[in-house]
């Protein structure tokens, strides 16, 4: 068999064992983090604004500056339906004031990125048979991961600083 189609360490290479173990650890972590994430961002709890609260918030924003008033008039920022709970900037800011929440969100970000990119690299490796292309794909994956990790961390750490 041509060496360029050769497999790299099926079940024996250290990096494969590392990837497998990382998928297990980040996977279990993600189950816990995502339960919390879903509860906080998608369920009707105090972390979101009720329809009445959101109406008040929009009133305040409309007086705050023309960019808000314009977006509300154009329907780009919309009132909540009866019974709807809305993610809103002030609530997110309030939650992220706590360093613990910042840490939880950044942990979630890193776990998700690591788990996703290890998985994606594995899937790509299954379909790309030429080892040089496979290496290039893995390098691309990690470059994107690094970029997204920096982007996400900056977004979470600098919230409310402007």
């Amino acid at each position: 068999m041509n060496s360029q189609y050769d497999v790299h360490g099926v079940g024996s290479s250290r990096s494969e064992v590392f990837g497998w173990l990382m998928q297990r650890i980040t996977g279990i972590g993600l189950v816990l983090f995502l339960m919390l994430h879903f509860w906080v961002q998608h369920m009707p709890t105090g972390f979101l604004a009720t329809a009445a609260e959101y109406s008040e918030i929009l009133k305040g924003l409309g007086e705050k500056g023309p960019e808000f008033a314009g977006a509300i008039a154009e329907g780009k920022i919309r009132e909540a339906l009866p019974g709807e709970h809305v993610i809103t900037y002030s609530k997110v800011l309030e939650r992220l004031q706590a360093p613990l929440w910042k840490m939880i969100d950044i942990m979630l970000l890193f776990f998700a990125l690591l788990h996703g990119m290890l998985g994606l690299a594995k899937v790509l490796g299954d379909y790309i048979q030429r080892s040089s292309l496979r290496k290039a794909a893995v390098i691309c994956c990690w470059a994107v991961t690094l970029f997204l990790a920096v982007q996400g961390t900056v977004s979470v750490m600098t919230v409310g600083m402007n």
Partner: peptide
């Protein structure tokens, strides 16, 4: 589902850039 989620994760993180601008964030959420 894994491929779909990793694709969504990238979109989600890029969307969070709007956290630097309250008006942009409300529009993004809408």
């Amino acid at each position: 589902t894994g491929l779909a989620l990793v694709f969504y994760l990238a979109i989600h993180i890029m969307g969070l850039r709007s956290l630097s601008d309250p008006a942009a964030f409300e529009i993004y959420i809408t």
